[in-house]
């Protein structure tokens, strides 16, 4: 069997198929429908210092090739997360990366400190600086290289574990933000979070999302995500985790060729929570057929014309 393992920072993952934050709950919800031990890692829903009720409905609308969400970081808060989820993760046979969000630098730091102080087997943290659906924090950090650097620097001092900055595509040049994260000590970046989108019901003449704008995800955003991953991988030394409309092996291969060290499955989990396990299975077959010994040999190997 081909070697599917990938290394991010100092951590080895058994394969490059992860689930994206906000699309797989806390990893404990869908055990009836899939075997999560097949996955390289799961990334939790964003955790904030206090529990958040999220945005009023409607929060979801389907669009051509995708969907728009405006959940508003609804989550159980760090205390309940530690009490209920961290103990469960001890029995997981897959790596867990905890996604953190906040409205101030202090809040991000506090959440990370609180989780990091508890003995657990989590692999690291993904820092959400790119949520388009909350008024403060989130994307406000991810659109500025300065605040990205300041936040990353502070977090870097607090933990030895992985720090992955999740980047927004809603910026002029994503590589500027990526470089700021890298220089401030991030182990990796993940790209992309959702794009700001809107949906209108022409019959009722109403917006389909309470907050007017939401985050567009799914296969519709894949070309944008591929371009962002390729640009980041071409200008950074640290690994890039690719996200955006991945539904099957061709997508995984394309993101890997564009430069992704690992990939995250997002929207597709809502349609088929077993899709990650199936893709890992298909990846083994793909490597066998193409006589690939180690899948990471494909990273960044796309042939471009200039």
């Amino acid at each position: 069997m081909a070697d599917l393992s990938v290394k991010i920072g100092s951590v080895d993952f058994k394969n490059p198929i992860f689930t994206a934050s906000g699309t797989f709950g806390y990893g404990t919800e869908v055990s009836d429908l899939t075997d999560i031990s097949a996955l390289g890692a799961i990334i939790t829903k964003s955790i904030t210092l206090h529990s958040r009720e999220g945005n009023p409905p409607p929060r979801i609308v389907e669009t051509t090739g995708g969907m728009i969400n405006s959940i508003g970081l609804a989550n159980i808060g760090v205390d309940q997360f530690i009490a209920e989820m961290l103990p469960a993760y001890k029995f997981f046979e897959t790596a867990v990366i905890v996604n953190i969000a906040g409205s101030t630098v202090e809040e991000y730091c506090q959440v990370l400190k609180i989780i990091d102080a508890v003995s657990s087997n989590i692999a690291g943290y993904e820092i959400n600086i790119s949520c388009p659906n909350v008024k403060e924090g989130g994307m406000a950090f991810g659109v500025s290289a300065d605040t990205t650097a300041r936040l990353t620097e502070r977090l870097r001092k607090l933990t030895e574990r992985l720090i992955i900055l999740k980047l927004s595509p809603n910026v002029t040049d994503i590589t500027v933000i990526g470089k700021a994260a890298q220089e401030a000590g991030a182990d990796a970046v993940s790209a992309i979070n959702t794009l700001v989108g809107m949906s209108i019901n022409h019959l009722s003449r109403e917006s389909n999302i309470f907050t007017t704008y939401g985050g567009l995800s799914g296969p519709a955003i894949k070309p944008i995500a591929l371009a962002c991953v390729h640009k980041l991988a071409s200008s950074l030394e640290i690994p890039v985790l690719g996200i955006g409309g991945i539904t099957a092996i061709p997508d995984v291969v394309e993101f890997t060729l564009a430069g992704a060290t690992a990939i995250q499955i997002g929207t597709a989990n809502f349609r088929d929570p077993d899709i990650g396990r199936k893709i890992v299975f298909d990846l083994v077959e793909y490597c066998k057929q193409d006589k690939i010994e180690s899948f990471d040999s494909l990273i960044g190997q796309v042939r471009v014309f200039q």
Binding site: P57, P58, I71, N269, R271, P273
Partner: peptide
């Protein structure tokens, strides 16, 4: 009823007050 993306609790989209 409500708009929902998944149907089993992971999208958190289908809230009612």
């Amino acid at each position: 009823e409500s708009y929902m993306a998944c149907g089993f609790g992971i999208c958190q989209g289908c809230v009612v007050k």
